[in-house]
Amino acid sequence: MTPAERIMIEHECARLIALYANLNDEARWEEIAALYAEDGSMTRPTSPDEPIVGRAAILAAFKARPARKTRHLCSNVVIDVLSPTEATGVSAMALFTPDGPPRLGSFHDRFVLKDGRWLFARRRGSLSF
């Protein structure tokens, strides 16, 4: 793999993290679910031991949430490229809502390249405090 190919993968995976946060704040659930591999898994920071597996189940979980206003901020994104089709990543997350204190945590992600698109294979969130 060339340095340029590695940088492109890092960019695509970091973009996926930012896109996820923006779509989440806009309640665009179908588009969020489409960011996952068909058999991908998601673990919310508030429920780190309860993975939701499969794109359809992830979509259903988002749709089942009560409506709310949020702003997610992601930073300290570090992507490690494992191969031309796999990468991992870690990012810090801050969640702001009008009716509660900020929540701070992180995401540990695994990415896969499927049909020319980088997707979440696993997204595991946790709260720091």
Rank of each mutant, 00 (worst) to 15 (best):
R6W: 07
D99K: 09
K69T: 15
R55V: 05
E26W: 05
P98Q: 12
V90Q: 13
S47P: 01
Y20C: 05
F107D: 02
M1D: 07
A34R: 11
P51V: 02
L104Y: 02
R65G: 14
W118M: 07
E12L: 15
H72Y: 14
T85P: 03
A121L: 08
L113Y: 00
F107H: 05
D109W: 00
L113P: 00
V53P: 03
T2K: 14
Y36D: 02
L23N: 05
H72E: 11
R68E: 14
A14V: 11
I9D: 07
I7N: 15
S83E: 01
W29I: 01
L113H: 00
R6H: 05
T43M: 12
P102W: 00
A14E: 12
L113R: 13
K63P: 02
R15T: 05
T70D: 12
G89P: 13
P101M: 12
P84A: 13
L95F: 04
K69F: 12
F129W: 10
G40A: 10
A37K: 03
A64Q: 12
K69Q: 15
V53I: 13
R15K: 10
E12K: 14
A27G: 02
A14Y: 11
V112M: 09
R68K: 15
E26I: 03
E30L: 08
R117N: 06
E26T: 04
A34G: 04
A4W: 07
D39M: 04
P48M: 08
A94N: 12
H108Q: 10
S126Y: 01
P3H: 12
D99G: 10
A67V: 12
A64Y: 09
G54Y: 01
G116V: 05
I32T: 04
E10P: 14
T2C: 14
L113E: 00
D49L: 14
R44Y: 10
K63F: 06
R15L: 08
H72C: 10
P102C: 07
C74L: 14
S126W: 03
L127F: 01
S41G: 11
L119P: 00
G125P: 01
D25P: 09
D39Q: 05
A14K: 14
T70K: 10
L104T: 00
A94T: 14
L82K: 13
L59A: 07
T97P: 01
P3I: 12
L16K: 11
D49V: 07
D25A: 08
R6P: 05
P84F: 04
R65Y: 13
R6D: 11
V78D: 11
L104H: 03
A94Y: 05
